[in-house]
Simulated assay, not measured.
Amino acid sequence: MRLFLLIFGLAGLAQFFLPWWIITPVALAAGAALGRTGGRAFLAGFAGIGLGWLLVAGWEQAQNAGRLSHRVAQLIPLGGSGWALVVVTAIIGGLVGGLAALAGCWLRQAVLTPRQAPAAKPDQVLTH
Rank of each mutant, 00 (worst) to 15 (best):
G82S: 09
G52P: 08
G93V: 09
I91E: 09
V88Y: 08
G66W: 11
A90D: 09
S69L: 12
V96I: 15
G104W: 04
F42A: 01
G98P: 00
V87A: 11
G39A: 07
L85A: 02
V86R: 00
S69P: 11
L68R: 10
G66N: 10
I76S: 05
N64C: 12
A65V: 15
G79R: 01
A84E: 02
G98M: 00
G98D: 03
A30G: 09
G48A: 09
R40H: 09
G31D: 04
G98L: 04
S69W: 10
G31W: 04
T89A: 07
L54H: 01
V86K: 02
L75S: 13
P77C: 04
G39Q: 02
L51I: 15
I92A: 11
A84M: 08
H70T: 15
V96M: 10
I49Q: 00
L34I: 07
A100D: 06
A101K: 00
C105P: 04
Q63S: 15
Q61S: 12
Q61D: 13
A103Q: 02
A62R: 10
A57R: 03
L68T: 15
A30Y: 08
Q61G: 14
A84T: 11
G94F: 07
C105M: 13
G104P: 05
L85V: 06
A84Q: 08
G31V: 00
R71T: 15
F46T: 10
L54N: 06
Q61A: 12
A73Q: 05
A30W: 04
L55M: 13
Q63I: 13
L51H: 03
G58F: 03
A65M: 11
I76T: 12
V87C: 08
H70F: 08
A32Q: 01
L99M: 09
S69A: 13
F46L: 11
L34P: 02
R36D: 13
L51Q: 04
R67H: 15
R40G: 14
I91P: 07
L51S: 05
T37K: 11
T89W: 03
G94W: 00
R67N: 13
G66E: 07
G97D: 00
G38T: 07
F42I: 02
A32Y: 06
G39Y: 06
V87D: 06
S81I: 01
L95A: 05
G39S: 09
G58M: 09
F46Q: 03
V87R: 07
L85Y: 07
L43D: 05
G93C: 05
A33E: 10
Q61N: 11
V56S: 09
N64D: 15
W59N: 12
A30N: 10
T37D: 10
Q74S: 12
A100R: 02
V56Y: 11
L85K: 03
P77S: 09
L75Q: 14
A33P: 07
Q61Y: 15
V88M: 11
L75T: 15
